[in-house]
Computed example of a mutant assay.
Amino acid sequence: MLFRSTAQAAGPNAVGIIMTGMGDDGARGLLEMHQTGALTIAQDEQTCVVYGMPKEAVKLGGVDAVVGLPRIPELVTQAPTRLAYKRLHGASVPG
């Protein structure tokens, strides 16, 4: 519900991060955010305790970047630049 609400309320101005966990409900919500133009980030398998939820988000195609836990704050601080790039080019900034 959080990601779905964010997609509706903030759309392309939002950042969604999916981290370790089981299931796919969050992955579906993150996909909705991705489809509205939000920046979406998933924690990588190597740093997850349980790679279920991030894996599902990647499988659904709702993730702009898959990074290790230590890199997530870096991407969040780059969010304004990454969102602007995504709006202009229809794709996320590599890396």
Results as ranks from 00 to 15, higher is better:
Ala7Pro: 08
Gln8Tyr: 07
Gln8Asn: 05
Ala9Thr: 13
Ala10Thr: 11
Ala10Leu: 06
Ala10Ile: 09
Gly11Asp: 01
Gly11Asn: 03
Gly11Thr: 08
Pro12Asn: 13
Pro12Phe: 04
Asn13Phe: 05
Asn13Ile: 08
Asn13Met: 04
Asn13Gly: 15
Ala14Glu: 03
Ala14Asp: 06
Val15Gly: 14
Val15Asp: 14
Val15Asn: 10
Gly16Met: 02
Gly16Glu: 12
Ile17Asp: 11
Ile18Cys: 14
Ile18Arg: 10
Met19Leu: 15
Thr20Tyr: 01
Gly21Cys: 13
Gly21Asn: 03
Gly21Met: 00
Gly21Arg: 12
Gly21Asp: 04
Met22Leu: 10
Gly23Leu: 11
Gly23Trp: 03
Gly23Val: 10
Asp24Val: 06
Gly26Glu: 04
Arg28Tyr: 01
Arg28Ala: 12
Arg28Glu: 01
Gly29Ala: 06
Gly29Gln: 03
Gly29Thr: 06
Leu30Gly: 07
Leu30Ala: 08
Leu30Val: 05
Leu30Lys: 01
Leu31Met: 04
Glu32Ala: 15
Met33Phe: 00
Met33Tyr: 03
His34Pro: 04
His34Ala: 05
His34Phe: 03
Thr36Cys: 05
Thr36Val: 04
Gly37Pro: 13
Gly37Ile: 00
Gly37Met: 09
Gly37Leu: 03
Ala38Trp: 01
Ala38Asn: 14
Leu39His: 01
Thr40Ser: 10
Ile41Lys: 02
Ile41Asp: 06
Gln43Thr: 05
Gln43Glu: 04
Gln43Pro: 03
Gln46Ile: 04
Gln46Cys: 12
Gln46Arg: 15
Gln46Asp: 06
Gln46Phe: 13
Gln46Trp: 11
Thr47Ser: 09
Thr47Pro: 10
Cys48Lys: 12
Cys48Phe: 06
Val49Phe: 05
Val50Gln: 10
Tyr51Met: 09
Gly52Ala: 13
Gly52Met: 04
Pro54Ile: 01
Pro54Leu: 06
Lys55Leu: 08
Lys55Ile: 03
Glu56Asp: 04
Glu56Trp: 02
Ala57Gln: 02
Ala57Gly: 05
Ala57Asn: 01
Val58Cys: 07
Val58Tyr: 10
Val58Lys: 04
Lys59Phe: 01
Lys59Glu: 10
Lys59Asn: 13
Lys59Cys: 02
Gly61Ser: 02
Gly61Met: 09
Gly62Val: 02
Gly62Ser: 13
Gly62Gln: 02
Val63Ser: 01
Val63Ala: 07
Asp64Arg: 07
Ala65Thr: 08
Ala65Val: 11
Val66Glu: 00
Val67Thr: 08
Val67Lys: 14
Gly68His: 07
Pro70Ser: 05
Pro70Met: 00
Arg71Trp: 15
Ile72Gly: 02
Pro73Arg: 09
Pro73Asn: 02
Pro73His: 04
Val76Ala: 07
Thr77Pro: 06
Thr77His: 12
Thr77Ser: 15
Thr77Leu: 09
Gln78Asn: 13
Gln78Ala: 01
Ala79Trp: 11
Pro80Tyr: 08
Pro80Lys: 00
Pro80Leu: 14
Arg82Asp: 13
Arg82His: 15
